[in-house]
């Protein structure tokens, strides 16, 4: 069939028509060639139709591509808009939390008993991470190795467990408040991985991961001497991980959003 297709590409109709013409040429030609003009017009009309068809197909394809691009652009724009919206709401939330805190402090400072209560609340908030704090400490920076791939088995990539290990070691070395890339760790903050992103308090973070910890002034040295610190220094040399530890005389850590407790209830005090 394919051979037939290749060898007889010309329409059989043309050959038949030519044969017929050759036969009729022996006869005298018709007196009036009335159909010549009609057929020329028809050929022209069909060719015009073909041209329209080509142009329409081209335009339709072009338009389809443009429509797809428009839809994509619209989605991207929506994402940007909603992100900005969410950021604004976040900002509004922290503003309102500051207001609530100020109002509460003002109400409590009216009496001596309230004053004591305010000090206690403030101390608890430092411990739970819902109040901004400052003090001496250390910055630990973790980063993927330069040649790291997104492969799950890549040894030069930082995972959630790396951040967890460093945070645990810092707490063990006496850190009192820790923030990862500006996300303050609270008593209920999870450090976990979803897809390729590391989430701290359900917010995706991008490398490099800066873990700022407030604690004893010699926190950096203690951490470097610890088991975890030694391990990561080794890994920096073997796998090319980005790992730096810097002591800092004064760090400021932001507060986390207020923690709302839904299910846990305090025991009746004895």
């Amino acid at each position: 069939m394919l051979v037939d297709l290749m060898t007889n590409a010309i329409d059989q109709g043309y050959l038949d028509a030519a044969k017929r013409r050759a036969e009729s040429a022996a006869l005298p030609p018709p007196a009036v060639n009335r159909s010549a003009r009609t057929t020329t017009v028809m050929v022209a009309a069909v060719l015009a139709l073909a041209g329209t068809l080509f142009a329409t197909a081209a335009v339709a394809t072009h338009r389809g591509a443009a429509a797809a691009k428009r839809g994509r652009d619209q989605l991207v724009q929506q994402i940007h808009q909603q992100t900005a919206n969410s950021d604004q709401l976040q900002q509004q939330l922290s503003d309102l939390q500051v207001q609530v805190k100020n109002a509460r402090d003002a109400a409590l400072s009216a009496s001596g008993k309230g004053d004591a209560l305010r000090t206690e609340i403030s101390q608890l908030e430092v411990a739970t991470g819902t109040e901004a704090v400052e003090g001496p400490g250390a910055d630990v920076t973790l980063d993927n190795a330069k040649n790291a791939t997104n492969d799950a088995n890549s040894l030069g990539t930082i995972y959630d467990r790396d951040i967890q290990a460093v945070v645990d070691a810092l707490f063990a070395d006496g850190a009192e408040a820790i923030a990862v890339n500006g996300q303050r760790l609270t008593t209920r903050t999870a450090i976990r991985e979803a897809g390729d992103a590391i989430l701290v308090d359900y917010r995706p973070l991008a490398p490099p991961y800066v873990i700022a910890a407030i604690g004893p002034p010699d926190l950096a040295d203690t951490f470097l001497a610890s088991q975890t610190g030694t391990l990561y220094q080794n890994w920096r040399q073997v796998y090319g991980l980005g790992f730096t530890v810097e002591g800092s005389g004064r760090l400021t850590l932001p507060s986390a959003a207020d923690q709302v407790v839904h299910y846990a209830q305090p025991l009746e005090s004895p």
Binding site: V43, G51, T52, A55, T56, V59
Partner: peptide, 25 residues
């Protein structure tokens, strides 16, 4: 005439933007 007709057809298609029904696309 044929070449002219073809060109006219292309121009017509580009200028008129005939919309193709979705079912025929």
């Amino acid at each position: 005439i044929a070449a002219l007709a073809l060109a006219v057809g292309v121009v017509l298609g580009v200028v008129l933007h005939p919309t193709v029904p979705v079912g025929l696309q």
